[in-house]
Design a protein around this nucleic acid. Structure first.
Lengths: 261, 261
DNA sequence: CGGAAATTTGAAATCGCTCAATGATAGTGG
DNA sequence: CCACTATCATTGAGCGATTTCAAATTTCCG
């Protein structure tokens, strides 16, 4: 394993070099897929998790009636498929939204690391909790707000996450999801998604040219979305103890990242 | 700590007696609250998590605009407030739906246990993943299905969970949520929740008398809900090793999956 | 360049919402 | 134990956001 996205984990918790290399050696295989390819389908045996090196991936739940809901859009640096660790059969379908590169990690290697490296276990645990919060916020958004608010919330959360990967990330970026896919995320119809995009554009909150999107009024979007602001803790007190036997390095208090809002 | 609900954890993973008692000693205080009391509000410092001994609790997200969405209904045996471990300030409000008894666990004690007891850490990790799956299923339900389907899904999931606490649990039980609260869970209006209850009753799926509810056609409700069936693994292979210093058993190498759909 | 997929727009139908009023229930204090 | 009151459940009527169906462009990809 190489690459930038790994720095997300470092950022989340300063890993000791031993820990970092332990994590880096988990992957047994690197796969490349095209847009619309399925990385792993709901119902498949859950023997692997995935580290997203490059590209965007949708995590979907299929209802028994055959409806598909995108429950999470993964960006580079995300761990994917971990919820299914609690099941024998995968809970979600992982579907490439763009050309992607993923590292494949067998669950038993992950489990072994989990049991032998307490601090890494802590990081993975906290990551799962963070994902729960994102899901809860999405649920609030879908359950209690209008289509325009949901779209604003989605765009803002993407922007925040892009910025957490790359500090330079601009308010202008390419959205690799079709309007139909965005609609699916928001729990509305493609047609209505189109009208909602047009509405935000009319109101001067965004502008669009093809796949390119500009958030013209980030604060306005944030207000509209009205999702709570979250200040995730990279290093909660109970994890800040030294890894292994190395003396505890005091971390400079990092500026917290916030999410949505 | 005493009581039945703890057996849920035992059930989830056969704990060694040392582990069980370690867990039992986490709680520093037992609190009793009345219906509508707030156990811990969104924004409060996140220094505690809670073990629900008795009663029902709602976990809510408040939007910046002041709307409140119930994102989870907790039953006895549930751990509550853990998502906020990733934040300095609580992400969710915990609100008593009935008279409740909770055990209070300081986060640093929990963290210590997490770092010293790998198998317990594994249990907590898997529990978080399981919660993610429930949230994803709820999101699918709210995003892609009608009010009647959502209500069916909610009732079925309550029933399943009640049964997982008590094998004898009947299809007839008392629902301590008002219709307004149910409506909130489903992301609809109280008025419409009422009409939806009436609709399910007309169709012979449920019957009601006061707060008492009978699921008259569980399979019918399940079909209607069309939420995927989940088989949670109490003891995934990578956690099935003996606790403490027992040697790691080699798992049989399993067939690799291929991808690309 | 050609065909398929995605976007855009219109019009009509629906589901769920809002407002409003009435009846039932339960918790509280006398 | 009862009366009182607030909360909850129920029902009606009209409205509005979103859906559905359908067709015309436009964009993307091979």
């Amino acid at each position: 394993m190489n690459d930038a996205p790994l720095h997300r984990l470092h950022q989340f918790l300063q890993l000791s070099s031993a820990e970092a290399s332990a994590f880096a050696e988990l992957a047994v295989e690197r796969r490349r897929l095209r847009r619309h390819d399925t990385i792993r389908a709901q119902g498949d045996p859950a023997l692997e998790v995935y580290f997203l090196v490059e590209g965007w991936v949708a995590s979907c739940i299929d209802s028994a009636a055959g409806n598909r809901q995108i429950v999470k859009v993964h960006l580079p640096g995300d761990m994917m498929g971990t919820p299914s660790l609690a099941l024998a059969q995968a809970a979600e379908t992982l579907c490439a939204l763009t050309r992607v590169t993923v590292d494949v990690i067998p669950t038993d290697k992950l489990g072994e690391l989990f049991l032998t490296s307490p601090r890494l276990a802590g990081v993975m645990f906290l990551n799962a909790q963070q994902e729960r919060i994102w899901l809860m916020d999405r649920l609030m958004s879908v359950g209690r707000t209008s289509a325009a608010q949901r779209l604003a919330a989605f765009l803002i959360s993407l922007f925040e996450r892009l910025r957490s990967i790359d500090d330079e990330a601009s308010t202008r970026f390419q959205l690799p999801l079709s309007q139909g896919e965005v609609a699916n995320v928001l729990g509305i119809t493609p047609v209505h998604a189109n009208r909602t995009f047009a509405q935000l554009e009319r109101n001067g909150l965004i502008s669009r040219t093809g796949r390119w999107l500009t958030l013209k009024d980030v604060d306005g979007l944030r207000d509209l979305a009205s999702v709570p602001v979250r200040e995730f803790q990279n290093l909660p007190p109970w994890l800040s103890r030294a890894p292994e036997k190395a003396p505890a390095r005091k971390q400079p208090a990092k500026a917290q990242r916030e999410l949505s809002a």
